[in-house]
């Protein structure tokens, strides 16, 4: 049932670091996070790792396992051979704080920049009436657990630090799509999507959808429809004319 596995874990901080090799016990049914915890408890008490729920619901334990962005709590050891070396490294898109912990503040900054949800008024009886089919489109994106693996894998920012200022990443493009499809929201964010959050940088390679642990179709159901609506808006001659007539030049 149990066996000794070889783990290579990146250890270090912003100044640098390297992969360290450990031999560690693995038991039946365990996931990578269990093994990282065993390392902490028995060999390296100060090994830094983020985690919370250990059930794939909170999105804290994101890392790259054998180079692939994954949740450590949802990666079963049985997916590897017993003689296979398992390499665990921090998410590459974000600056390292220590060991497997990265500085994900980029994501919180982008979240704060998105114009807030603004609902239409309630109906006379104090309720909001919406049909299930209408809420389901946005519900798909609200399943997001903010693990930021889509951000990690997105090649627009993965090795292009300079794009972070102008590109919000797939997680926040689907947040914009979610708000755009939200039955109650009344704010139009299509211009911001294009001009401030960098929707045009995405060339729909669908890497984000591939790594999403929640199975959200970021590209097909979120980003592509949002791109289409932005295009409709921009190239519709009536809309264009209307925007020219109504818009006033800043003094």
């Amino acid at each position: 049932m149990s066996y000794d596995a070889t783990f290579r874990v990146w250890r270090g901080d912003a100044a640098g670091g390297d992969l360290q090799t450990f031999t560690v016990e693995v038991n039946e049914g365990e996931v990578v996070l269990d093994v990282i915890h065993r390392l902490q408890a028995t060999q390296v008490g100060d090994l830094a790792v983020r985690w919370n729920c250990k059930a794939g619901k909170c999105g804290s334990c994101s890392a790259e396992i054998n180079g692939r962005p994954r949740l450590m709590c949802m990666t079963r050891m049985s997916t590897f051979g017993e003689d296979e070396t398992v390499t665990v490294t921090p998410m590459r898109t974000f600056p390292v704080v220590r060991d497997l912990v990265t500085d994900v503040s980029y994501n919180y900054e982008k979240a704060a920049q998105i114009p807030a949800f603004t609902p239409r008024p309630r109906e006379a009886d104090g309720s909001h009436r919406m049909q299930q089919v209408d809420v389901e489109r946005s519900q798909e994106f609200r399943k997001c657990i903010e693990c930021f693996l889509c951000q990690d894998t997105c090649h627009v920012i993965r090795d292009h630090e300079e794009n972070k200022a102008v590109f919000a990443g797939p997680r926040f493009l689907i947040r914009l799509a979610e708000l755009d499809m939200h039955p109650l929201d009344v704010v139009d964010r299509k211009h911001e999507a294009q001009d401030e959050f960098g929707l045009g940088y995405c060339n729909i390679t669908k890497c984000c959808s591939e790594v999403c642990p929640e199975g959200i179709h970021l590209t097909d159901n979120g980003i592509i429809p949002l791109k289409e609506r932005v295009v409709d808006r921009r190239y519709d001659p009536l809309t264009w004319l209307g925007s020219k007539i109504r818009r006033r030049r800043p003094d």
Partner: peptide
């Protein structure tokens, strides 16, 4: 619960 809807929550209907 109702005020959560004013803040963007989408419950099943």
């Amino acid at each position: 619960v109702r005020e959560l809807e004013d803040w963007g929550a989408l419950f099943d209907r």
